[in-house]
């Protein structure tokens, strides 16, 4: 599980680098919110304190690479991880038909969260012109991202049970 968490963080870092570079020639609205996708993938695969800390670290990495105030991505990605954990207990989020609208909704909630925390962006037409396409891109890419993390963690972490599987741990009971 620790290796999966590490892979997720690495995936977020590489994803942020790619997005930062791609933004020089592609419109921002077409680029996914990598840390949100990683937070969701973590929520699906890494429960407990480790998932919590990793989601925070993923957001913190985005904070360090962004011009925005420190801490806001960390907080928002922590929220995304928590909501995903809540979702996992209620619906089968590993299914694409559930995951896609869930990620689109999370994207909208993150926009509101960002606005509440920093006042940026002001909720106007210009913002929605970016936010709506980006929410759609996030939703479309989410499943592929989830599969990518699944594939990578399957290689490095043979103990990873995968999403939706039943896990019994002597120390913590049924999860």
């Amino acid at each position: 599980m620790r290796r999966t968490a590490l892979v997720a963080w690495g995936l977020a870092l590489v994803g942020l680098w790619i997005v930062g570079s791609a933004a020089t020639w592609l419109p921002r609205a077409w680029l996914p919110d990598v840390t949100l996708l990683v937070a969701v993938a973590l929520g699906l695969r890494v429960p407990g304190a480790l998932g919590l800390a990793t989601a925070w670290a993923v957001g913190g990495t985005a904070d360090l690479l962004s011009g925005g105030p420190l801490g806001q991505h960390a907080l928002l990605d922590l929220g995304a991880w928590l909501l995903t954990r809540v979702g996992v207990h209620r619906v089968d989020l590993a299914r694409g038909v559930v995951l896609v609208p869930f990620v689109a909704t999370l994207s909208a909630l993150q926009l509101l969260g960002q606005w509440a925390l920093t006042g940026i962006p002001g909720l106007g037409r210009e913002v929605f012109a970016i936010a709506i396409p980006q929410a759609l891109v996030n939703a479309v890419v989410a499943l592929a991202f989830q599969r990518l993390l699944e594939g990578l963690s399957g290689r490095v972490d043979p103990d990873d049970p995968g999403p939706g599987s039943l896990r019994i741990d002597a120390a913590t009971g049924l999860r």
Binding site: G48, A49, L50, L52, A53, W56, G59, D63, P69, L70, G71, Q72, A74, L75, L78, L82, L117, T118, A171, T172
Partner: peptide
Amino acid sequence: IERLRVPLLLLLVALALLAIASDR
């Protein structure tokens, strides 16, 4: 570690809020 989950959550939230406030 699992038993410390809720305190950890509170700590991480507090750290993030503190970072936002100090940055601003």
